[in-house]
Design a binder for these strands. Structure first.
Length: 642
DNA sequence: TGCGGAAGCT
DNA sequence: AGCTTCCGCA
């Protein structure tokens, strides 16, 4: 049953830490785990089990031994290893599957998806162990948060572009095995990996292309554009054999197949089969079809298609947000026909800005000679700043005001935000905003939940979810009311269940940014990068630049308004939680714990995560709107120059 | 078994 | 940052 891909379902090499990645000196435990999981040889020791990212350590001692060998820590044992795994809880890379011994579950949403939005971890459910179990119903994958910080905040590696290449190289070098012990394991693993990678991997495409360390954001861009160092437009052999490709081919080839839905988050929301609309062709088909790969071309197409589809369906731009590179050909509402959809060789769309821009092979450095500035985002300010300053006030009193508020009065907000920014609240650097945005974005996962059960997530998530629960309910409420706005999104009754399993919680946030016009959408988020100084990312100028934006904005705003209301509350909640240590303390144990975690994460992250934590995953609609906003905001940023 | 704090190492 | 080590608690 294995996936065609390779022996086992492979996890993307990227999963392994690249040397280049900033903080990664060595392989990380989760990478190692994935490595083991992908190797059949180790299935007796550790294997996928259950669903969606869930794995069981069949032989804890052995796993510990292997890990110890890899790390040259002979003293390693399961107790220690498990501590390390627990350490991932906070990061949300993993969580424990309650009730099952030695069973943990990856939070692919955050992990993988973050990095590889396109990837669908789950491939089929019953998939053999080689592949991670797929979520039941759905496949949708989620969009990666634009802000990296959230999930992996601590582990930047994931995002770091370097990841792609690194693994391969490493393998080649054989660098991995360092220990004198040189346990066979090491060599084995590496060997296998190396082989795989070399063969083909979509990642490879990226390899070299990526600059040594791009900020996560840039990553996304990279997707869109990085691929060819040389000339972008390579007609490209988009199809890669991708033996290793992280994306398992979906076992279900059918039209309804996983891939399509899976791949595009937006899509998942919308047009899937059941929808009346015809999904944009591009999406559904070819690209994703059987062989979607990271190939740049594919990516482009995918993105475009996605974009369009989103656009077409009036979906939230979220998709766009993530992929700055992509430009929608026509901001106007594209009719179905859209050219963009072409998968293979669509007409050269504007997408390429970024692509083309990435001139050199990735590694080079200067990333942006391009016209668009591709600035990398500066790391988010530390929470400290916030805290020290207004943060308290803001959070306490008006969490809503700052960001969430945007939803409420989208239109107005826009102005305020853009132009003035919330007076009382210090404007946080864009980065913050971004993070928030991201949080919201994430959420596609909710759908997943609906589809499949929360169970998967494991208890941990639940706990977290529970906290947010009421929020969600509220949200749902709103949705019910507001849904009308977006036809396409079927909001499922997301009701009771918590939302998302893991990740979402933090991942997506609502962006404070005002929605800009479609044009904005088209643009990449590029602008995002915030400069530390910028209080208002969206400079008024940006807005001014494009009247269209305004138009869209309004249009969106209407929709958003409907939805928006609830968010504030949620936002506040989370915020409080995240920020207030004080509050946390008062809370019950569980809550306290979690809150603490969150905080830690945020703090560590340097604030990137901060906002993100707060919002619970918003209902799809909202998210969409938020995304839009975000997109717009970004746009505006970019355009600011205008 | 599992959790998580604390300290320490790299 | 990402563990590793140790430990008390449940």
């Amino acid at each position: 049953m294995k996936t065609p891909a390779d022996t086992g379902f492979a996890f993307p090499e990227w999963a392994y830490k690249p040397e280049s990645s900033p903080g990664s000196r060595q392989i990380q435990l989760w990478h190692f785990i994935l490595e083991l999981l992908r190797k059949e040889e180790y299935h007796d020791v550790i294997a996928w089990q259950g669903d969606y990212g869930e794995f069981v350590i069949k032989d804890p001692d052995e796993v510990a031994r292997l890990w110890g060998a890899r790390k040259c820590k002979p003293q390693m044992n399961y107790d220690k290893l498990s501590r390390a795994l627990r350490y991932y809880y906070n990061k949300r890379i993993l969580h424990k599957t309650k009730g099952k011994r030695f069973t943990y579950k990856f939070n692919f949403n955050k992990l993988v998806l973050v990095n590889y939005p396109f990837i669908d971890m789950g491939s089929g459910r019953g998939v053999p162990q080689s592949a991670p179990p797929v979520p039941t119903g759905g496949t949708h994958f989620r969009f990666p948060p634009s802000t990296p910080s959230e999930v992996l905040s601590s582990s930047e590696e994931l995002r770091s572009p370097g990841m792609f290449s690194s693994v391969a190289r490493r393998m080649a070098r054989g660098s991995v095995s360092d220990c004198s012990d040189g346990t066979s394991t090491n060599s084995e693993l590496e060997e296998g990996v190396g082989a795989d990678e070399r063969g083909v991997g979509p990642e490879r495409a990226f390899r070299g292309l990526l600059p040594p360390r791009l900020p996560h954001e840039s990553l996304f861009r990279v997707y869109g554009g990085a691929p060819n160092p040389a000339g972008l437009p390579r007609p490209a052999p988009r199809v890669h054999p991708e033996p290793l490709s992280p994306f398992p081919v979906s076992p279900l080839p059918g039209p309804g197949g996983l891939l399509a839905p899976t791949l595009s988050p937006a899509l998942s929301m919308t047009p899937t089969p059941h929808l009346p609309y015809t999904p944009s062709p591009s999406l559904s088909s070819p690209m994703m079809g059987s062989h979607f790969s990271f190939n740049p071309e594919d990516m482009k197409h995918y993105l475009q298609a996605h974009t369009q589809s989103v656009y077409n369906y009036h979906l939230s731009p979220r998709a766009f947000l993530h992929y700055p590179n992509i430009v929608i050909p026509q901001p106007h509402r594209p009719t179905l026909e859209k050219p963009a959809t072409h998968h293979l060789h669509g007409p050269p769309l504007p997408l390429s800005h970024s692509l083309s821009q990435h001139p050199g092979g990735g590694e080079d450095g200067p990333q942006h000679p391009s016209p668009f500035k591709f600035k990398l985002q500066p790391p988010p300010l530390g929470r400290k700043q916030r805290d020290s300053g207004s943060s308290l006030a803001a959070s306490a009193s008006s969490s809503s005001s700052s960001q969430s508020s945007s939803f409420t009065g989208s239109g107005q907000i826009t102005n305020s935000v853009l132009a003035a920014g919330p007076p009382k609240i210090k404007v946080e650097p864009i980065s913050d905003i971004e993070s928030e945005e991201e949080v919201e974005v994430t959420d596609i996962s909710e759908e997943d939940e609906l589809n499949h059960n929360d169970e998967d997530d494991g208890g941990d998530i639940f706990a977290s979810t529970a906290r947010r629960h009421h929020h969600h309910q509220l949200n749902n409420h709103h949705q019910a009311n507001g849904n009308g706005s977006s036809p396409s999104t079927p909001l499922p009754p997301h009701s009771n269940h918590d939302d998302d399993p893991d990740d979402d919680e933090e991942v997506f946030k609502t962006p404070a940014t005002p929605p800009i016009g479609s044009a904005a959408l088209a643009f990449p988020l590029i602008g995002l990068k915030s400069e530390p100084g910028l209080a208002t990312p969206i400079s008024p100028g940006g807005t001014r630049c494009i009247p269209l934006k305004l138009r869209f904005k309004r249009r969106w705003s209407e929709d958003q308004k409907m939805e928006a209301d609830g968010e504030r509350d949620e936002a506040e909640d989370k915020k409080v939680r995240a920020e207030g240590e004080e509050d946390v303390e008062s809370k019950p144990e569980e809550a306290r714990r979690r809150g603490g975690e969150v905080e830690n994460g945020g703090g560590r992250a340097g604030g990137g995560v901060i906002l993100g934590l707060m919002l619970p995953p918003p209902p799809t609609q909202r998210r969409a709107s938020s995304e839009l906003q975000r997109a717009t905001a970004q746009l505006s940023l970019e355009n600011t120059g205008c």
